[in-house]
Design a protein around this nucleic acid. Sequence first.
DNA 1: AATGAATGAGCCTTCATTCAT
DNA 2: AATGAATGAAGGCTCATTCAT
Lengths: 196, 196, 196, 196
Amino acid sequence: MKDEPVRQRLLAEATRLFAEHGFESTSVQEIVAAAGVTKGAMYHYFSSKDDLLHEIYMRVLRMQMDRLFEIADGPGTVQERLHRAAADVVETTTANLDDSKIFFRSMHLLAPETRKSVRAERRRYHERFRDLVAEGQRSGVFSDRVPAELVVDYFFGSVHHLGTWYNAKGPLTGAQVGKHFADLLLASLGAGHVDE
Amino acid sequence: MKDEPVRQRLLAEATRLFAEHGFESTSVQEIVAAAGVTKGAMYHYFSSKDDLLHEIYMRVLRMQMDRLFEIADGPGTVQERLHRAAADVVETTTANLDDSKIFFRSMHLLAPETRKSVRAERRRYHERFRDLVAEGQRSGVFSDRVPAELVVDYFFGSVHHLGTWYNAKGPLTGAQVGKHFADLLLASLGAGHVDE
Amino acid sequence: MKDEPVRQRLLAEATRLFAEHGFESTSVQEIVAAAGVTKGAMYHYFSSKDDLLHEIYMRVLRMQMDRLFEIADGPGTVQERLHRAAADVVETTTANLDDSKIFFRSMHLLAPETRKSVRAERRRYHERFRDLVAEGQRSGVFSDRVPAELVVDYFFGSVHHLGTWYNAKGPLTGAQVGKHFADLLLASLGAGHVDE
Amino acid sequence: MKDEPVRQRLLAEATRLFAEHGFESTSVQEIVAAAGVTKGAMYHYFSSKDDLLHEIYMRVLRMQMDRLFEIADGPGTVQERLHRAAADVVETTTANLDDSKIFFRSMHLLAPETRKSVRAERRRYHERFRDLVAEGQRSGVFSDRVPAELVVDYFFGSVHHLGTWYNAKGPLTGAQVGKHFADLLLASLGAGHVDE
DNA sequence: AATGAATGAGCCTTCATTCAT
DNA sequence: AATGAATGAAGGCTCATTCAT
């Protein structure tokens, strides 16, 4: 770890500490101590403590967007693509649980402008997912009894809360939880079982 | 509002402010100013800022427990009771959205001991709900493809995240969202439509 | 103890607590709790926390003055009277160790005026004792190599510090320490042994 | 004074103020104002207000120990060494009267652990001094009518109370008081006059 | 004689940030 | 690229005291 560039180390330690104690309960001093550098070094790479948080958000957003668009625009029936996207976001979330904990716990701490841009990005993500649901509803393979919009809020609530209970050392792998959650989603849309 | 006893006013204002800016970003000074008293008054009724948070948690827990047990132990088929309990927790949550925002965002700020007791209480709640699902699975009216435990985590993730998107001034009432969420839950368990 | 009048109980508990934790580290709340009453009661009998301290000083001064004058003006040779006065102040001090601890540790906390009056009273005490020494020096039974003034400061330093080491449960009674101290004083003045 | 390093200036001003008003009546604000820096600077060098007090104690202990051991283990008859040690501690005390005032007035404010270590060090000091007295008693040059232990408590009481009456601007120098006190001590032990 | 809610000033401490080096 | 001394604002909390009852 001592070989990693300082910037990466700072980001990694900040992520770990923010997830563990929360952004506000983590002091810059603790972060630089964990990374084995001094404050000056941190302020050389990041303009502020908020900037650190901002970078973490950007990293998460970028990755999630990339994966969703690749799957949603990829091959397969709409059932297959929705199942795959749902399972994937769950697995990715369990693999980066610290990011997830921070994401939904610290939104209110972002600078207003940053928060706005994060929300906009998040909105795009949400809409792409919703479009997948709507596509299936239009084509009749999904029930449209519940609005697509609400279905997505329903599903992502479940995903976002993985951080509060999922444990990598528990009985289920992230992939298993992903499959189950995707099954539940598809079932709630009245779709037959999808084999992935 | 000036008529309410000081203690209630403090609790109400603290709840509002914690939900809006987060616990750590809300100063005691802001709370007492909003309640129209001085710091000394607050420390007369509460032993610390943490105590204020603790009281909010207790209030939420008490109410949710009461409602769930009343419904779960009440009359009706298991489908009806699960649907009713699910819809009710959603409606209650939308009606006390500030409490909900605080609950899942500030757990890590509670004193270790308090956190433990909150978790234990929360666990009892979770288990009662899970037993309802398991009851239906055993009697064959619910699919048991997904473990009851996981179904409950899945559903409550959705409930807990209402705070991030639900808006009382939006197009849907809390009762409507409750019905939709309960429908989705029952559908994902393969249960036929339940009329409530 | 519950029978003692409230005023006495407050004074007794305050003395004990001031001696144990210091005046400034003892809160009015602690005192009234120890005495089993509420703040209002304390402010009924004493005008302030300072007043409590002031009363303790007055009580000590009164007692010490009475005893010294009675002995110094009493019968016996000057050696006998000095020995008796010295042994007595030591014994009295060990018997009221809390008072002594407070006396020399909290002088700087008295209101300027009170401090002045305590100092004046203390001065009278000191002078009566010094006169006893000087009387012996003039009559030749005591060495006058060291000024009487300094001898008294020397001796009372020893007395005042009993509070830092004397322990009622230790091997020596207050009377024994008193005899030893008086012996040392007389010896340092070159006086032969005095049997008391 | 502006040239002295900040740390030294803080320690010097704290010593002066603690001696004058007492530890608890001196605010950190007063200390930093007197030293011409801000609070942050103080907390850069000291971990707390208590730490400041602790440092003062350590400084005093170190100096007194060094001096006593040098004299006690040095050349000369036991009378000469005891007289020299006694006179020296008096002179050192008058030269650092603020330290002395703080020492015996604030012991009860030290953290329990610190207090314990200060007491232990103080005990070592006391014992070295007592051994000097005992040495003279064994060899017959000092009277053993009063236990060595008690003689030391007697003498150090006098020393410790210099802070309550000695005034550098008064008629006697510290060295003069030292000689008188040493004379009184030796005389009370029945030793003939020692010329130093 | 005694209560207890409420005040208001002050205290110790933390912390993100800056800046000369 | 990095240090570490220093700042200044703010924060949570304590406490002696008052006052209506």
